[in-house]
Design a protein around this nucleic acid. Structure first.
Lengths: 122, 122
DNA sequence: CAGGATCCCGAGCGATACTG
DNA sequence: CAGTATCGCTCGGGATCCTG
């Protein structure tokens, strides 16, 4: 954890950013249209979906296929590289799922110990 | 990837944030003092190290031990939970290390295809 | 030595409106 | 349908100064 660790962190930042994981998870092993991905991720704005997909495409993690139809249609899918990322991220995603409860409990315990600006009524 | 996915993302955000991974990596299986961790992570400010460590402690991932000596001394170490996180994160960290090169290449190729505001001299 | 308190800038992102 | 363009706000986080 020293010198080129920053490069790792850069990649981890990407995985950790607000939407990339969700998008990669939704794509999984199937090809999806823009609107399908959007519908599959409740809170995302079309802007952030576009931005996120562009970034993933730029990094060689997803492919973008445009069909010159009317109305337009664009398909997204994970590349081979993207699939290896998905596989490598699985353990961590599972960890998150498995331990959310523990984390919540730890957090509550921690918060109960420190008053931290006890509620006032302004 | 639908409803409680947001909880997973919340945890992933934590892992993906700017310093958590580095801190967890530095702690690894050994106890370290505040200043040791700080020195092991080049770019970090003491403020962000404090903030990051507090968040990890709150989530039950690291323990904080204060010695009432002069000068003061504070030790940090991963909890059992933190260790399971470290293990689960390994595959992803390795993936990042192994594929940084590929990502850079993909990025360069992508950028070379789109002019994207060709350099001007203002 | 370990960290609390402030100030402050800019990236990140949501909301909205327009287009091929 | 699948974007692009703008505006504006939030807040992450760096710099700096102070303390037990």
């Amino acid at each position: 954890m020293e010198t080129e660790d920053c490069r790792v962190r850069e990649v981890l930042d990407k995985v950790g950013d607000k939407w990339s994981v969700s998008v990669i998870g939704v794509l999984g092993r199937e090809t999806r249209r823009f609107s399908e991905v959007k519908r599959a991720i409740p809170g995302i704005s079309q802007r952030m979906l576009t931005v996120t997909l562009r970034a993933l495409e730029r990094d060689g993690l997803v492919t973008r296929t445009v069909y010159a139809t009317v109305p337009p249609r664009v398909d997204y899918a994970l590349t081979a590289l993207g699939l290896t990322l998905l596989d490598s991220a699985w353990p961590l995603m599972n960890w998150a799922l498995d331990h959310v409860g523990e984390i919540d409990k730890a957090r509550d315990a921690y918060d109960r110990q420190r008053p931290e600006v006890p509620p006032q009524q302004p």
